[in-house]
Every structure is written in C-alpha cells, then in structure tokens.
C-alpha cells in the first residue's frame, strides 16, 4: 500500500530559506534508507509558493481565475512530499516517525495520507482467465 508524507510549508520554507545542513544531511540519509529498504517511490521538494500559480474555478463563473503566488502560509501549503510503498500501515507510520525534522525553525508538520486504490502492477489473476472462459462459453450458448 502506498502512502504520502506531506511536509507542510513553514514561514521559513516559504521565505526560500534552506533549513540547516544537519537537516539536509539527515534528509538525504533518510531517503537513502527508504530506497535501501525498497519502499521509496518518489520524493520531491517544491519551490516556495511565490513561484506558483493557482487556477480557481469560482462557482458563479465558468472561466478559471488565475492567481499568482505567493499564497498565505496557511495549513494548505505544501513544501515537500515523499511517496512510499509498504506492506502495512504500521510500517508507514514507523517510517513517518523516522522522518527528520529541522530544529529551531518553529512548528513543523508532516501529514501522512494513504493513497487510494492500491492496485499495484498486477491486475489479473487466475480468476480473470476463468471469467474470460465464461464469456467465451456464454457467447456459444447464445448462438448455438
């Protein structure tokens, strides 16, 4: 099952500042350990919202309205995300708790969200083959 760790923006990240070297190093080591365990799908950091745009669809108009960043550093802003693929929710939480946190930069928030429809890459099973056989048989039943 896949999970997303969402690191929320802070005033610091929105100002375009890099957290200290210790945090950067810890983050690199953390990603390496994720990859080494075979659970890392992707991990990206975003530029501050000052480089972003928002496309809004107001309820009274069909035309989109385009807003240029920066946006208010409220709960909605994201600074980084890490996507992992693990075997259980306990594993996901365990990894989330091991994610490094910068010190001395005020409040820091990581949100853990489970991704929908964990289909993985296997779509078919032996049952599918038997269902296909049933379809074949039914077409003959209809015609003979």
């Amino acid at each position: 099952m896949r999970f997303m760790f969402i690191v929320k923006a802070t005033g610091y990240s929105e100002a375009g500042g890099n957290y200290n070297q210790k945090y950067t190093d810890a983050m690199i080591a953390y990603k390496k350990s994720l990859a080494g365990a075979g659970v890392l799908v992707s991990a990206e950091a975003l530029h501050p919202s000052s480089t972003g745009i928002r496309i809004m669809y107001p309820s009274d108009s069909e035309k989109p309205e385009i807003l240029v960043g920066p946006f208010l550093a409220d709960q909605e802003l994201i600074a980084e995300y890490t996507l992992i693929d693990v075997d259980s929710e306990a594993d996901a939480l365990n990894w989330a708790l091991r994610m490094p946190v910068p010190t001395g930069c005020g409040e820091f928030k990581i949100e853990v969200r489970k991704l929908k429809k964990n289909l993985g890459f296997l779509r078919y099973s032996g049952t599918c083959a038997l269902e296909a056989d049933l379809k074949d048989q039914l077409s003959m039943l209809k015609n003979f």
Binding site: A35, G36, A37, G38, L40, V41, S42, D85, F121, L122
Partner: peptide, 18 residues
C-alpha cells in the same frame, strides 16, 4: 510490461531481496 513506473519495480525488487 506492467505499465508501471521503473522506480516502483526497482524498489519492489530491492524490498524482496531484503
């Protein structure tokens, strides 16, 4: 072959070996 991301498959393999 599975229309999956290469990273996903690579990580699956690493995990299985581990």
């Amino acid at each position: 072959s599975f229309l999956a991301a290469e990273a996903t498959i690579a990580q699956r393999i690493v995990r299985a070996k581990r």
